[in-house]
Design a protein around this nucleic acid. Structure first.
Lengths: 205, 205
DNA sequence: CAAATAAAATGAACATTGTTCATTTTTCCA
DNA sequence: TGGAAAAATGAACAATGTTCATTTTATTTG
C-alpha cells in the first residue's frame, strides 16, 4: 500500500468516525443537541477538524440520512421472498411503518428534517438519489400490482405517491406529536390501526 | 371604563401587535429567521418587552398556530352547504390540501413544527385543543359517511386517522421538499394527482 | 399638585450555537 | 535531517434565545 493510499484510508476512517459519533449523538439526543462541539468532543478532535471532513452540519446530516436509507433498504430485502405483488406492497408499508416507529429520529431525518435537502440545495444537486431510488422501488411494486389486475382505473405515479403519502402521513403525525393530545381512544395503536384500515381499502381494489 | 380595564386592554393590544408582527415575519421568512430581535424591531419595542407578553419563542408560535387553525376553520365553513357527507368529506380534503399548498409555512406550523407542541409540554397541558377539535370535525363527517352506508367493515377512529394521515402525508412530503428531486413526471401536480387517486379509492367504498 | 408607589419597558449581559482561519503540530519525502 | 505539505487546532466572530438589574412611565395617594 502506497503512502497516498494509507493517507486516503486514514481520511476515510476519520470521516467514518465522525459519522459514527454523530449518529450516536443524533439518535440519543436529537438533531439540535448534536452540536459540532459535541461531535468533536466525542471523537477527541477539535471543532476545526470536523470542518475539514465535512463542509458544514448539513453535510454531516445528509451523510447520516444516506446511511439510514441503506439501513431501511436492508430491512426491505425480505420483501423479495413475496411473489404476490399485492402482498409485497402491503408488507412494504408495514416494514416502512415499523422502521419509522422503531427509529423516529432517523425517520424524521429521512423524510422531514430540512438538513439533508438543504445540503442538496447547497451542492446544486437537482436529484435526491435516495428518494428517487426508494420511490422507484415502490412504483415498481405498484406497477406489478396493476399488471396483476389491481387498481383498475388508477394512474401509476400518482397512485404510488398516494400510497407513500398515506404511510408517511400516519408516521409523521405520530412522530411530530400530533396524535398525543388529541384524546384518541387507542393512542398507542393508532398508527397500526390506521394502516389496517388502509389495507382494508386496498383489499377492495 | 376603569383604569384597570384600560390597562388590560392596552396589554391585549400589545400582545396582538406582537403576534401580528410575528406572523408577518414568519410567513415572509420562516420560523428560523423570525427572531425575537426581529419581532421587537418590527414593533419598535425592546427585546425584554416581548418576554413580558410571551414566556418564550414557543409561546409566540403556539399562539400563531392557534390563529392558523382559526383561519382554516373559516375556510371550512363552506362545507356545511354540502349535504351529502361523502361529498363533504371529499371537499374537506381538497380544502385542507388547498390551505397547505397556499400556506406551506402555516401548515408546517400546525402539523409539523415542534414549537407549538413544546409549548403544550412546558405548560403541562395534556390536550392539544386545536387538534382535538379538528379531528372531531373529521370524525363526525366520517361517522356520517358510515351511517349513510359507506366504509362497510371499517372502524371510525382508525379510518378517520387514516384519512387525515393520507392528506397530511401528501402535503407534508411536498412541503418538506421530498417530491422535488425525485424525478417525477408531473412534479407540479403530484399532490393534487395523488389526492385524485385517493378519491377514486373512496368512490369504490 | 407633589410625592410615593406600582407597572412597564429597557438593553446590556450571558450562554450556546455554527462557522472561519491564522497558527501550530505532525507527517513524509528528498 | 531539514523543509515542505498536510492535518489539526482553538481562539474569535456573529447570531441566537433568554434573563434581570436598572430606568422610565403611569397611577394612586396624601
Amino acid at each position: 500500500m502506497s503512502s497516498a493510499d494509507r493517507k486516503a484510508k486514514k481520511k476515510e476512517e476519520l470521516k467514518a468516525l465522525i459519522l459514527e459519533a454523530s449518529m450516536k449523538l443524533f439518535v440519543e439526543k436529537g438533531i439540535e443537541q448534536t452540536t459540532i462541539r459535541n461531535i468533536a468532543d466525542a471523537i477527541d478532535y477539535s471543532i476545526g477538524t470536523v470542518y475539514i471532513y465535512f463542509k458544514d452540519k448539513n453535510a454531516i446530516f445528509h451523510a447520516l440520512h444516506t446511511q439510514c436509507f441503506a439501513e431501511l433498504g436492508v430491512q426491505f430485502r425480505v420483501l423479495y421472498d413475496l411473489n404476490d405483488p399485492m402482498e409485497r406492497l402491503k408488507a412494504m408499508g408495514k416494514l416502512y411503518i415499523q422502521y419509522a416507529m422503531d427509529n423516529p429520529d432517523k425517520y424524521d431525518l429521512m423524510f422531514s428534517l430540512k438538513a439533508p435537502m438543504e445540503f442538496l440545495n447547497d451542492t446544486q444537486a437537482n436529484e435526491w438519489e435516495e428518494g428517487t431510488a426508494s420511490f422507484e422501488v415502490l412504483r415498481t411494486v405498484v406497477q406489478e400490482c396493476i399488471m396483476a389486475g389491481h387498481f383498475k382505473g388508477h394512474r401509476l405515479e400518482p397512485l404510488s405517491y398516494l400510497i407513500w403519502g398515506c404511510v408517511h402521513g400516519l408516521c409523521s403525525l405520530e412522530i411530530r406529536a400530533r396524535t398525543k393530545g388529541v384524546l384518541l381512544k387507542n393512542p398507542d395503536t393508532i398508527v397500526a390501526d390506521g394502516y389496517d384500515e388502509f389495507l382494508k381499502l386496498l383489499d377492495k381494489q
